[in-house]
Design a protein around this nucleic acid. Structure first.
Lengths: 202, 202
DNA sequence: TAAGCTAGTAATTAATTACTCACTTTGAGG
DNA sequence: CCTCAAAGTGAGTAATTAATTACTAGCTTA
């Protein structure tokens, strides 16, 4: 039995398509990924894709849905397994980094979607993802203040911006070095500086 | 005399082209900027562009050169006008933010160029720009350690990653909010957290 | 076995892209 | 005023793109 059967049920083909796009995005600008390239990687003809998606935009939207669902699930799991808010923040940070190392195309897709001019469905999903992300961070930080782990006068919104930016910095560094895996090693030290910035002077 | 003479000297036309691309990048993904769009914005036909540039890639490279030159000049000027390393770092941060507010397309161009798959000339310029940027940061931070403004055990390379990421976070936030100018107001608070993260516990 | 459905192919479409070229216009200097 | 090189025009090109089409192989089920 071939590992890639010619005929696949529609839902599996949709899933495979999404994963293929995520993989391709690891190596190139997402907006430059053509339907022909997706099909080729899947061992299909280009036209076959349009049996399962009405348009390319629909593919991109499915990809964003996939990213949002998977990433948030990871983050929630990381948060749930830590009692202290600060520990939960750190776990969330590491989980996000780990997710990017496994799927290096994801930050490109997200950022690429955000800087689209038109308000595409995919862009809306991206925005909504980051909104949920920010809300979870805010909640944890408010808790952290009450627990005395974070300084009382911390501006939570600002700290949220910096949290996301911190990860962006790691991503940019990995683009420069052409080495995604190094993120994993750098992450703890980067978060240590961040934690000191938001923590209370004990 | 018309404010826009039909015939412009070659060097001025090149400069105008670059500035047009930077302006267009404020509103859309740089890789989706077509030569037709550039020409239209300049009030020219598409063919005219190729009198001054051999290819579109050459245009993008000229844009990156423009960005690198202008940005570094701003940063150097900001650094030069402050004696203390920490004050210089902060001035550098604010100067960078100010530059982005004036030219919102710049971070898109930079990031877009970095995530190109092929090793284009423009990408090489982008990499070189960030390398210079990092070196200036490193130098300031080493000075800061000697002055006792930064903690002795600070990992400079990590702090550099976080510095750039901090700005990326502001950029991402402005993409979300669709409001670049707000960066200017947010910047001081964001840098305050960063400074606390890298500063020595006095 | 016949009928119908699902998932594929292969060729083709119209639109868009970067780029070229023969020709025309402009404007500064002799 | 004339000349002429520089600058711009406008109509092309070939290549690439997303999307459509007519057709087919393979399964399920009556």
């Amino acid at each position: 039995m071939s590992p890639y059967p010619k005929h696949l049920p529609a839902d599996e083909r949709r899933e495979a398509t999404v994963e293929t796009v995520v993989e391709l995005a690891a190596g190139q600008n997402p907006s430059e990924i053509t339907t022909a390239a997706i099909a080729k990687r899947m061992g299909l003809t280009q036209g076959a894709l349009f049996r399962h998606f009405p348009s390319k935009d629909a593919i991109l939207q499915a990809v964003m849905d996939w990213v949002a669902e998977r990433l948030m699930a990871r983050l929630d799991k990381a948060v749930a397994s830590h009692a202290s808010p600060l520990a939960a923040l750190e776990a969330m940070f590491m989980a996000h980094v780990e997710f990017i190392v496994e799927h290096p195309g994801v930050p490109r897709i997200l950022f690429g979607e955000l800087q689209r001019a038109e308000e595409t469905p995919a862009k809306r999903v991206a925005k909504s993802l980051l909104r949920s992300y920010g809300e979870r961070l805010r909640a944890l930080m408010e808790q952290g203040k009450q627990h005395g782990e974070l300084s009382d006068d911390l501006e939570v919104d600002t700290a949220v911006v910096l949290f996301i930016g911190t990860i962006q910095g790691l991503v940019m560094q990995s683009l420069l070095a052409g080495d995604v895996v190094r993120m994993r090693a750098q992450a703890p030290a980067v978060f240590a500086i961040y934690r000191r910035g938001i923590g209370c002077a004990q």
